[in-house]
Nucleic acid binder design. Structure first.
Lengths: 214, 214
DNA sequence: TTAAACATACTGACGGTCGGTTTGTGAAAA
DNA sequence: TTTTCACAAACCGACCGTCAGTATGTTTAA
């Protein structure tokens, strides 16, 4: 089989299988051959579409972030003002439905230093600016009052992704609840009162399901 | 040469050379052979003392954290109360003298996902508890008033290590200054008023020297 | 017919293993 | 006290399997 009519489908297949293997086995522990075997393809195929293994990882990450970006933007459309919009968006991301999609990624981060670092960078470069914009909107429509919107946004996303998410650090359920409470508390101090009790409950039950607790 | 009288010296040599190579070339980019060549030793020697390449990395990290731990504990002895002690300790860590020791480590993190993740874990598991204890002391002697000492400590150390440190994210000098200001501001909100203007200035000039700015 | 889309055989480097060698050490024998 | 010797720690280096990446060929849509 050569000269496929729809090479984009091939690229998609490669990304899907790679994503699955990277997140289940870990990036280092997944060989190109593993991907090829599962795909029933050849090395020529993969190296025709991607220039290196890391190039595949980058594409996988980009795809996932693209998805959560759309999810987030969609949720932002709800609510009467910026504060409510942001609340909705977080609630959605924290809901089972939304989080499930990212389950296997989140869960496998500990095995994947590469994943952690890449997702850190994407968090700062892509997610945080979106949140920052909403915070600034909130300052405009007076639903929020945030002194450092850009920095606050980065810290929120950073803490959510690597501190509260119970993957990097094995801990008990209670500890995660306290972290979420802390985030809520300190966001209030900063004039961002968006985390509801139901959201704390939701977040915690998600993390509990994922199995990050000892 | 076999059956060296002082094997600890051999272990030390291995760790020193490994640390240097890991931090200059990156962990993945440093081969066991690179280490052996620089040491003038054999594979048998290295695999006699360490069970794997990652085992060497762990030992290197442990050694560095041991050093900064001692530095921190020493600084804590100064000051009339917990708040002042903590201020001193941060000031020391932020000073040129103290930070220089960690220069090459910090500077090379971007090349080293393994380094970032390991240092994240060490930060939470070792550094943060030390800071948390001081915060609690501060609650006792009424020099501080912190509602969530444990969580606050973790967030401080996390932000210092991976958010303010301009290694993971290339940025301009002004952006780092703003992050430090933000940290100072939000610590005050949390009842931890320990970051002085001179410290902000110091931190920034350090990061500037290291060359994390574009 | 041309170039994109694959296939296949191969290369070099790397982490780790393993059988073997050297030598410090502690205790028994002289 | 001195000598001897068994043992294990320290070290050597050839070798192996694996893996990312390459060189070169073959097929087929346009």
């Amino acid at each position: 089989m050569a000269r496929n009519k729809y090479p984009e489908q091939t690229v998609d297949k490669i990304l899907n299988v790679s994503s699955k293997l990277f997140t289940t086995k870990g990036y280092d522990q997944t060989s190109i051959q593993d991907i090829l075997t599962e795909l029933g393809m050849s090395k020529g195929a993969i190296y025709h579409h991607f220039k290196s293994k890391e190039d595949i990882l980058d594409a996988v990450m980009a795809k996932h972030f693209e998805y959560s970006k759309e999810l987030f933007q969609e949720a932002l459309k709800k609510g009467d003002n910026a504060r409510e919009s942001l609340s909705y968006a977080f609630e959605l991301l924290a809901s089972h439905k939304g989080a499930r999609e990212l389950d296997h990624i989140i869960h496998s981060q500990i095995k994947n230093p590469q994943f952690v670092v890449k997702s850190l960078q994407k968090t700062i470069e892509e997610s945080a600016p979106m949140v920052a914009k909403v915070l600034e909107d909130g300052n405009q429509d007076h639903s929020l009052s945030v002194q450092y919107p850009k920095e606050t946004a980065e810290v929120i996303m950073l803490l959510l992704n690597i501190w509260i998410n119970p993957i990097l650090f094995i801990r008990s359920e209670g500890e995660t609840v306290k972290r979420i409470e802390f985030l809520s508390y300190f966001l209030k101090q900063l004039g961002v009162d968006i985390i509801s009790d139901s959201m704390i409950h939701n977040l915690n039950s998600i993390y509990s399901d994922i199995g990050g607790y000892k």
